[in-house]
Every structure is written in structure tokens, then in C-alpha cells.
Amino acid sequence: MLKVAVLVSGGGTNLQAILDAVDSGKITNAQVSLVVSNNPNAYALTRAKNHGIEAVCISPKEFESREKFHEALLKKLQESGAELIVLAGYLVAIPPMIVEAFPNKIINIHPSLIPSFCGVGYYGLHVHEAALKRGVKVTGATVHFVDTGTDTGPIILQKAVKIEPDDTPESLQRSVMEKAEWKILPKAINLIANGKVSVDDHIVTISD
């Protein structure tokens, strides 16, 4: 049984999609054993507690330096026995020390079709604002492994979402979540939990 730690910053809708997928059997051989947020008021922590999952806040504001914060986060992840770390709307950059401690064991969901609209500054509504401003006809979501860059790790799954003429950043954000994020993030976890994902020279292969 793969032990999964989920890192969140806000409401936790992606976390809920994961929990629902575990409960329904769409994710097998995995369980969420820890939820961590940098935000003490994140509703995701309440979702976790309601599900009987350990939920903790580890905020940079509680530490004298960023390095101390990183050390505390790494310590908690290691103590939990986490075998896969899922960034589900976690708005804090993961430092190299954590990436190196969990090589190809950290995944992230990004609300665009990488390499479009990704990298530094592309988070939350900014991604959808940029897509609409550029006038692309299709956007979507990407699940990728986390490396020491920003949205540069090996791509696991992608799903496209059509942009409608009357879309706003807010409506597009909702559409991408419902049609793509909530589907491919649980799917990626299930594939990893069942040994279907391998990485070679930055390329992900998914076996049958």
C-alpha cells in the first residue's frame, strides 16, 4: 500500500478528488496518510481531518529562515513514511533538498498543457488569464514529476479542455479543474501505485 502525502495551500478540491477516488476504488494500492498545508486556514486541512487523515500546518512564517522551514517540512515527510508526495495546489516552491530526498516521487498538477503557460509566475488564475489573453483554443492540465526547475519535470499525463468564447479566467479555471485536474491527478496516482509508471531520460512511459 503506497503511502501518499498531499501538500495543499487552499480549499483542497484536488485533495477531495483524490480522496473520492480512493473511496470509490479508482485509486488502488494507495492511501493518503498525511496532508500538509502552509496555510493554517486552508479548508483542505478540515477535509483531511474529516477523513481521519493526519493534517498539519507547517508555515514558513513559523521559522526564522526558509532553510529551517524546508528542514521541518522534509522531516515531517520522512517521519510519515511517505512514498509519494502530491502537490495539489501547493503554492510554495519545493527546494532541491526535498526533491533530491524523493527523486521521481513528487508529482504536481498544473492547470495548463505544459510547456504552455507554465514556469515562474504561472499559478492560480494567472495561468488562465494568460491562456485567454493569448487566444488559444485549447488548454488543459498536466501531471508531472517535480524536479529542481519550475514545471520542468517529466510529464506523466495531460488532458485537453476546450476554451469557450464566453470563458472568463474564473470559469476557465473551474472548467479545467472539473474536466481535467480532478480526472488525471487521481489517475496518475493510481498508475504510480500500481507500478505502471517509469522514467527514462526525462521521458515517462506508462505500461499496460
Rank of each mutant, 00 (worst) to 15 (best):
M1C: 09
M1H: 14
V6R: 01
G10E: 12
G12N: 08
T13F: 07
L15S: 14
L15M: 13
Q16I: 04
V22N: 09
V22H: 12
V22D: 10
D23Q: 07
S24D: 10
S24W: 07
G25D: 11
G25Q: 09
K26I: 00
K26Y: 10
K26H: 05
I27R: 04
T28C: 03
T28F: 03
N29E: 08
V32N: 02
S33D: 14
S37L: 09
A42F: 04
A42L: 03
Y43N: 14
A44N: 10
A44G: 15
H51K: 14
H51D: 11
A55G: 10
P60T: 05
P60F: 04
K61C: 01
E62M: 05
E67F: 09
E67M: 07
E67W: 02
H70R: 10
E71L: 12
A72L: 12
A72Q: 14
L73A: 06
L77G: 12
Q78R: 13
E79V: 11
I85R: 01
V92H: 01
A93G: 00
I94L: 09
P111A: 04
S112R: 03
L113M: 02
I114V: 15
S116W: 03
V120D: 07
Y123S: 06
V143L: 00
F145T: 00
F145C: 01
D147R: 00
T148W: 03
D151S: 12
D151P: 00
D151I: 14
L157Q: 07
I163N: 01
D167V: 13
Q173R: 14
S175D: 15
E181F: 07
P186W: 03
N190Y: 05
L191M: 09
L191K: 02
I192N: 06
N194V: 11
G195M: 07
G195Y: 09
K196L: 08
V197S: 01
S198K: 12
H202A: 06
V204T: 01
I206H: 00
D208E: 15
